[in-house]
């Protein structure tokens, strides 16, 4: 818990502190200024992106029209009309959901086992997958997938994305399961559940926040992954990060279209993040403090 949430949760304490000393006012001012600086700093690129997506290409470069301009939806018409981006959304969704779902199916029991049976060496091995730079993997993978006839389909991309999402899920969930008292499962077993039953009925529901965190992070990684999708996708299965490059040409860049596409790509992720936010926060704290 941060100081900010403590004060917000306890108005009486805040009141008392403010009336007690002058430096608390200084603290409040500092806090507001700091918050504004951080929020403006972090939000500015996103705001700029959204504003640019509503401008004509001629206005984007014009500093005088940064905030005041005549908005246009032409760029979005380009993205969804001329460039027909909807199938790319579907492709990204299939690959993201597929890789995250399968990675959870593998990673969840793996993390549970590694947590309960102290298989630290296995855990380190799994982490290795994230340490190796992706670029060094892609040539052999391409070779294997090409020989299996998987290149151009969803399968190869799902498998490739799983390679990065499984370690992520395993490591977040290991620390999460570590934090769950074994007593709960033992109590359940005393009451007649099998170990598997205890896992499904007790540990799994309790670890929902951790699972949500791991899943959303894995999904975002997949959603934004560029390299694997570039090499392994086909013309019908291109994902969004690859498709967005359509706006960058040899001798011309359609900044408006690029920004509109970026905005359109970011929106689903932001909506998802807001929706799952409370899980993500508690999940991350759980992982960070107990791992």
């Amino acid at each position: 818990m941060t100081a900010a949430t403590v004060t917000r949760a306890n108005p009486v304490a805040r009141k008392r502190r403010r009336s007690r000393a002058g430096d608390s006012r200084a603290y409040t001012i500092f806090r507001v200024v700091a918050l504004v600086v951080v929020v403006v700093g972090l939000a500015f690129p996103i705001v700029w992106m959204i504003l640019a997506s509503l401008k004509s290409n001629i206005d984007i470069y014009n500093a005088a029209k940064t905030f005041s301009f005549v908005p246009t939806f032409d760029n979005y018409v380009t993205v969804f009309g001329e460039q027909s981006f909807l199938p790319f959304f579907w492709n990204s969704f299939v690959v993201g959901a597929g890789s995250t779902g399968l990675a959870l199916a593998l990673g969840l029991p793996a993390a549970y086992a590694m947590s309960r049976f102290t298989m630290r060496r296995s855990a380190s091995t799994v982490l290795l997958a994230r340490i190796i730079p992706a670029i060094s993997l892609i040539v052999p993978w391409y070779f294997i997938f090409a020989n299996l006839g998987l290149v151009g389909g969803y399968g190869a991309m799902i498998l490739a994305h799983m390679f990065t999402s499984v370690p992520l899920i395993v490591w977040i969930l290991i620390s999460f399961f570590d934090g769950l008292p074994v007593d709960l499962e033992e109590a359940a077993q005393v009451d007649g559940l099998t170990p598997i039953g205890a896992f499904f009925r007790i540990s799994l529901p309790l670890s929902a926040p951790g699972i949500a965190t791991a899943a959303i992070l894995a999904f975002i990684f997949s959603w934004n992954n560029f390299l694997f999708s570039l090499i392994l996708s086909g013309s019908q299965t291109k994902t969004l990060p690859v498709a967005i490059m359509n706006f960058i040409g040899y001798a011309s860049i359609d900044w408006g279209g690029l920004m509109a596409a970026s905005t359109a790509i970011t929106v689903p992720i932001i909506v998802m993040a807001v929706f799952f936010q409370k899980y993500v926060v508690s999940g991350l704290t759980a992982g960070a403090t107990k791992g």
């Binding site: 597929g98 399968l102 199916a105 593998l106 029991p109 793996a110 086992a113 299996l148 006839g149 998987l150 290149v151 151009g152 389909g153 969803y154 399968g155 190869a156 799902i158 498998l159 086909g234 013309s235 019908q236 299965t237």
Partner: peptide
């Protein structure tokens, strides 16, 4: 986990067959 892994591979193979275009 073996069962899950096996079903995953089967599912992916199915996926690939359907979407494989233009190689």
């Amino acid at each position: 986990s073996l069962a899950v892994a096996a079903s995953a591979v089967v599912a992916l193979a199915g996926c690939a067959g359907g979407a494989d275009a233009g190689t």
